[in-house]
């Protein structure tokens, strides 16, 4: 629960992709806007399938969108 160990650049990437809205991204990957909000906040680590679909929307490899956060 709470902050996951998986960080992401989804918000930044959306902004760089013509300021794509959360709803547009959600529609493209087949989830609700709430799920995109939760992922961006770092409160949910998506399934591998969803992570790959998000990366594909941005045309980037998975590790450029999601990364393991360093908790030291």
């Amino acid at each position: 629960m709470g902050k996951s160990l998986i960080g992401n650049n989804v918000r930044k990437l959306r902004f760089n992709h013509n300021e794509m809205t959360q709803q547009q991204l959600a529609d493209q990957v087949g989830v609700t806007r709430q799920t995109i909000v939760t992922i961006e906040k770092g409160n949910y680590s998506p399934s591998l399938e969803l992570a790959f679909r998000i990366a594909r929307v941005f045309g980037l490899p998975l590790e450029d969108v999601f990364f393991l956060e360093d908790h030291q």
């Binding site: 989830v31 609700t32 799920t35 949910y44 399934s47």
Partner: peptide, 9 residues
């Protein structure tokens, strides 16, 4: 309203 339940739901 969302017409489906996704993985988070």
């Amino acid at each position: 309203e969302p017409s489906f339940a996704d993985e988070l739901d």
